[in-house]
């Protein structure tokens, strides 16, 4: 058994080493994008079951953004929705024999956390401007500036580690049990891993919303709550 904390290249594309998480991610991208293209080719005002399910997902994500960030969800829908769908499908890809979920590698989780980190800054600057966004680090007073700066990094790091730890541990445990007791015993653990994967996708998306919402909170209801406080 290889260490779950290390990623090894499985293919070399010129100078670029391609690891298994990258290849699986490409496969997931193909499935997600291709499936989306196939399913959204013939959308109708009277939806079928597949269209209704897709609309349900989109509406649920929008509703979650609206409730969590207290803003109009349209600008954040693609990013948050992609986080949720990608993390969910990545976590559930472990059901395919021989496939290790990309989210079980620290690089993938770091990439996601890095995108969230950058998105927080970009959305904060776009919505509140330089002064408004940088001024948010002084809240509630200037003494909190170091803590707020450190918090930006630590929460991103925690976001990465949380997802990595949960998914990797599940994969690791299933691998150990499978190597020890045989073929069917890990099945309940795999079912539990399904639930864990969905919960982790939800948690990652909600935390991304919370972080981005904290950066743009002058736009919506959080600002009012702040004034009331």
């Amino acid at each position: 058994m290889t260490s779950p904390l290390e990623t090894h290249p499985v293919w070399q594309l010129g100078p670029v080493p391609l690891s298994m998480p990258v290849l699986v991610t490409w496969g997931l991208m193909l499935v997600l994008a291709g499936g989306s293209w196939l399913l959204t080719r013939r959308l109708a005002l009277r939806p079928g079951r597949a269209q209704a399910a897709m609309e349900l997902v989109v509406e649920a994500v929008e509703q979650q953004i609206r409730e969590t960030m207290r803003v109009e969800p349209r600008p954040y829908l693609a990013l948050i929705g992609t986080f949720f769908l990608f993390v969910l499908t990545a976590n559930w890809s472990s059901l395919i024999p021989g496939i290790e979920p990309p989210t079980a590698s620290i690089e993938t989780d770091a990439a996601l956390a890095l995108i969230v980190f950058v998105a927080v800054i970009l959305y904060g600057l776009r919505v509140r401007g330089w002064r408004g966004y940088l001024g948010s680090f002084l809240y509630p007073n200037i003494i909190m500036l170091p803590l707020n700066l450190i918090e930006n990094f630590t929460r991103t790091f925690a976001l990465m580690v949380r997802l990595f730890g949960n998914v990797m541990s599940g994969v690791f445990v299933i691998g150990i049990v499978l190597s020890l007791v045989g073929f069917l015993v890990p099945v309940p653990l795999m079912a539990l891993e399904l639930l864990t994967g969905a919960v982790q996708a939800y948690i990652f998306s909600v935390l991304a919303m919370v972080f981005i919402g904290g950066a743009v909170e002058g736009e919506g209801g959080n600002a009012r709550e702040r004034k009331d406080a």
Binding site: P9, P21, V22, S105, A110
Partner: peptide
Amino acid sequence: IDWWTLGLQTINV
């Protein structure tokens, strides 16, 4: 940390 993987996954996402 495989930085190639990190970069590729960032671009992929």
